[in-house]
Design a binder for these strands. Structure first.
Length: 575
DNA sequence: GCCGTTTTCGGCCCGACTGTTTTCAGTCG
């Protein structure tokens, strides 16, 4: 059985949770959590690193002990340390930790005093009024436990970035109108451009006496006020999204923005650097003794620890501080760098606009080129095209190119990669195209070896140009295929073909870590909208977020090139 | 359990809010 990074990260987290309940050394607990985060953000499979003989202790937060545990898990699927913990504490206690308001101390008390091991037992005890009598608990705590058990069943945990933005926009507009409010900005994982966000962190600067907290908690979509103070409040909105609002004075803005943007791992590293220089860094500024020496802007905070400004998408504690220190921060690709879109649908298959409408919409966005890439017949649900229909579309595009000015229309297809790795369209048609996008739309459940081989064979097809949404995941709906993506990335480099970063907000596939692996391998990534309507070209913004989180520069992205350069690169794949 | 521009030992980020207390521990971000 293959052991993946996620399996290892989860076991480290479980160890951390259980150790915390045992009141182990908190720094030891943190070491496990740090290791889990490192493993998760790695991009490379640990199994492959080990197979290559890499030294795991070179990874941040992984020392001799944790490296040995990783190797043990790779070999046996489990680690002795966790088994030992399970002898002492039931694994189900972890579920209790995830109830808001219950931390390790309270979970331990519930277990020791009342013998509570599971959520069901906790619910029963709380209903019977037995929880309120424990030291440190009370009637209010008991009530909150019951509420959160009930709401856990109905609400989802994280929200797509795109959905969070829909909720955030009217709320920000509302806050900006409040008397005495100056700046209103979104911080947190949203500002870092994460594909999903767990909550919204909003930072405001205001004149003293502004009624911002009262007005915030009275916002029409608020269904619960979790906490309300003079500088910080937390609410839950109707659709379950949690929003934290923090208010600071304008002089603190940069320090507060940096602090509330995170990530936590990044902030800890910055603060430690500050400590090393005799500085204390918090959300109010950078202090030497009692004197504030920086904090009005984010840039001043970075400068105080000897670093240049680090863009928010990089602030994940994944090496950005070392890179900044060494003057090696990437110059991130931006939306305005994109000169075309290489994956677009029309109403010939499952799009909602005509060929001409889509082309005009692309031209309106200022693109130099757009590729029309409809589905093939195997994808019946999308009304995929037969060879005849694609031939007709090719002719239609030739005619359109003669009448439309200011944009070049490339002839393409999103062809199904069939189970055996062959393409769902005869070569005689494919050879008339400017590009061939291959995509998996079926048989997601093949074994890793079979899936990898299937896609590799498709890439070897003489007309194959670009692998669409390489992992096949749909956020919060469908897990990624089990596929050796690193191998496919290397194969794309050898073969001279390209990988997509699909910008649809529920795909964002490649993900951030995979983008980074692609960049390091020297693969070119195409950031495509996969637009099915004129409005969906704006999804490219989400793709840019992800690309930035994956450290991509303009030069790493295929469709930042000129039409001539793209044609030349695509011809290379078609020979 | 990790790590090193002061360190191979002795540190390890920092503050707000709640609920249960009667001065603060626990939790959270």
């Amino acid at each position: 059985m293959a052991v993946h990074n996620e399996d290892i990260a989860r076991q480290f987290e479980e160890i951390a949770d259980l150790l915390e309940i045992q009141e182990a050394n908190p720094f030891r607990v943190r070491a496990y959590r740090n290791a889990a985060r490192t493993v998760r953000g790695l991009g490379h499979e640990l199994s492959e690193l080990v197979a290559r003989g890499a030294d795991l202790t070179a990874l941040p937060g992984i020392g001799k002990d944790l490296a040995a545990k990783i190797e043990e898990m790779l070999q046996t699927g489990a680690t002795h340390a966790l088994k030992v913990l399970h002898r002492e504490l039931p694994a189900s206690l972890e579920d209790l930790l995830h109830i808001p308001g219950l931390g390790p101390r309270k979970v331990k008390a519930l277990y020791d005093e009342l013998g509570i091991k599971t959520l069901a037992q906790l619910e029963k005890a709380a209903r019977a009024g037995r929880v309120r009598d424990l030291a440190g608990f009370g009637a209010r705590t008991e009530e909150k436990i019951l509420e959160s058990i009930a709401s856990q069943r109905t609400t989802e945990k994280r929200f797509l970035y795109s959905r969070a933005r829909q909720v955030a926009e009217p709320l920000l507009a509302y806050l900006k109108k409040i008397k005495g409010v100056h700046e209103v900005v979104l911080a947190g994982s949203f500002r870092r451009g994460r594909e999903t966000v767990g909550d919204l962190d909003i930072l405001v600067t205001m004149e003293s006496g502004s009624p911002v907290m009262e007005r915030f908690t009275a916002y029409e979509d608020v269904v619960e006020v979790v906490s309300r103070g003079s500088t910080r409040s937390t609410v839950i909105l109707r659709d379950g999204l949690q929003v934290d609002l923090r208010a600071v004075e304008p002089d603190c803005f940069g320090a507060a923005l940096h602090y509330f943007t995170g990530s936590k791992a990044h902030n800890i590293q910055i603060r430690r650097m500050g400590q090393g220089r005799g500085l204390k860094i918090n959300e109010y500024g950078v202090f030497r003794g009692d004197e504030r020496i920086a904090g009005k802007t984010e840039k001043s905070v970075f400068r105080s620890v000897g670093l240049p400004f680090i863009p928010p998408p990089l602030r994940e504690g994944r090496g950005e501080i070392d890179a900044a220190h060494g003057g090696k921060l990437p110059k991130l690709v931006e939306l305005s760098d994109l000169r075309g879109d290489l994956h677009v649908h029309t109403d010939a298959t499952d799009g909602s606009a005509s060929l001409e409408q889509m082309v005009r919409a692309a031209r309106k966005r200022g693109f130099d080129y757009v590729a029309i890439t409809d589905h093939t017949q195997h994808l019946t649900i999308a009304h995929g095209m037969t060879p005849d229909r694609l031939a007709q579309q090719i002719d239609a595009i030739d005619r359109l190119n003669e009448s439309v000015h200011g944009i070049a229309v490339l002839k393409g297809v999103e062809v199904d990669i069939l189970e055996d790795g062959s393409l769902d369209m005869p070569d005689s048609i494919l050879q008339r195209l400017d590009l061939v996008i291959g995509a998996v739309h079926s048989h997601f459940g093949l074994s890793r070896a079979k899936q990898t081989d299937r896609i590799r064979r498709a890439m070897d097809h003489p007309y194959f140009s670009l692998l669409a949404h390489p992992s096949g995941r749909l956020l919060q709906e469908r897990a990624a295929m089990d596929v050796d993506l690193e191998r496919l990335i290397r194969h794309a480099v050898e073969r001279g073909c390209f990988l997509e970063l699909n910008a649809q907000p529920q795909r964002l596939d490649l993900d951030d870590s995979q983008c980074r692996v692609a960049r390091e391998a020297g693969a070119l990534v195409s950031i495509n909208s996969d637009a099915h309507s004129e409005a969906q070209f704006s999804d490219l913004e989400f793709g840019i977020n992800q690309a930035q989180r994956g450290w991509l520069e303009k030069g790493d992205v295929l469709n930042t090139r000129s039409l001539g350069a793209v044609r030349k690169l695509l011809r290379g794949t078609m020979d």
